[in-house]
Design a protein around this nucleic acid. Sequence first.
DNA 1: GAATTGTATTCGACAATGTCGAATATGGTA
DNA 2: TACCATATTCGACATTGTCGAATACAATTC
Lengths: 258, 258
Amino acid sequence: MIQSIDRAARVLSSLQGARHLGITELATLLALPPSTVHGIVKSLQSHGLVAKEPNGNRYMLGPALLKLSNVYLDTLDVRARAMRWTRELSRRTGLSTRLGAELFDEVIIIHHNLRPDGSEQMPETGLSIPAHASAMGKVLLTYNPDAADDVLTRPLRSLTGETVTDPARLILQFALVAERGIATEEDEAVLGESSVAAPVVDRSGSVIAAVAVVMPSSEWPPDDNVLNDLRETARNISRELGATVWPPPVSRRHALDD
Amino acid sequence: MIQSIDRAARVLSSLQGARHLGITELATLLALPPSTVHGIVKSLQSHGLVAKEPNGNRYMLGPALLKLSNVYLDTLDVRARAMRWTRELSRRTGLSTRLGAELFDEVIIIHHNLRPDGSEQMPETGLSIPAHASAMGKVLLTYNPDAADDVLTRPLRSLTGETVTDPARLILQFALVAERGIATEEDEAVLGESSVAAPVVDRSGSVIAAVAVVMPSSEWPPDDNVLNDLRETARNISRELGATVWPPPVSRRHALDD
DNA sequence: GAATTGTATTCGACAATGTCGAATATGGTA
DNA sequence: TACCATATTCGACATTGTCGAATACAATTC
């Protein structure tokens, strides 16, 4: 791990708060001398990864990130393949759908289809949700025991009263997911919102993403048509990626076995 | 400039091509030894800024970029303020509108309103366009002579037969922009698409963004209502940001004066 | 299935490079 | 105007990143 790159990445992370930060603030946050931070920030700035506030001397994330992120999305194979299927899924179920990928202990939404009823809705692409509080996250963790270990060793943050924060309970849920190929979440990330998710598998048989259907908790539980449509969608995307089996087998040992 | 951070940023840039790259390819591209590149890439990977292809050993941009970029957009003051005005501008003119910021020799679209006619359109947020081929770019360069110098010293790439690639002609256009507070572009970036742009000014009087109206070239030139609506929009956003004068005066000397 | 090639990856010595503290500049506030 | 807080510059030092060689790995060919 290269020290200065690691520090640079930490600077970017620190800049994710709503508030913009000055050199001194960053320095105390990272426990580094201001001159060191200054050098890092200027290097990032010269590539547009960080920008100085128009007036004032605070720093914020830079526009180059938007460009890179756009390329990221455009060249993501899963996403390109999944889009037409999730659109169809949204249409059939009348619900909003998401495609998500793992980002450490979170799931990041890499594609979002609005509910087709034309109501006012926020685009959710780019949002990230703690893995343990999301149906997609539960899917991804179930099929990636390494990631699961990582998440379960740290304390689990509660987002709503319903968030499952007990590792043991989560592990039980993983077992269910492995069995049914489907994960659920009821009000665990956002009150009034629940979701069901299924794994997306690639040629090599690894789970590389998850598809989800999101519904108002008032309509919970989803009826069997929705579950079947979701399953079909996940299977279709996976097939298009070259997967041969669906749902996939769970790779091996789980956190409990240690 | 910190060497390793500079190199890391270059790695990210190189990964912007549609094709994913292996360590060796990156190494030859950057003229560095493979082991060096490997260290950099692994450091970036450990922060999710770069990701290994699911199977295979090529690298691509990572999901952390999407998260950072999302924060970038959400915390951009201009964007938040401009959105409601550009939506209104789209509605009044029946055209698609853009908000753009400078990114070195390009303009990056930080907000996009679709044409309200409900036709099939691509969201453009995140796209970047060479500054010299875009109306927004001409606005930004006109009011940032430093950036203009930078762009004009390098050869200008032609995107369509109509792209202005002669620095002298561009400088003439900048003078016109400075006079009228409005820049135009006819088929210069995309054939069949033309646009008009105006500057967005902040409290300190600097031009920090540009608003544009995009129309099919068949409807060119825009009538006076469109121009007035655009000007009003730019003025309103600027006012909301604390600007006192609009259009702003051009700061000082221009490339020609050297 | 064995061999070969083109990869990625690990390792350790060297010195180039980033780091840090002190000195200086800047800008805002009393 | 003087003061304070913050950003920024500078240079000596030793930590740290760099590089080439050695190794491991994987795919492809015969």
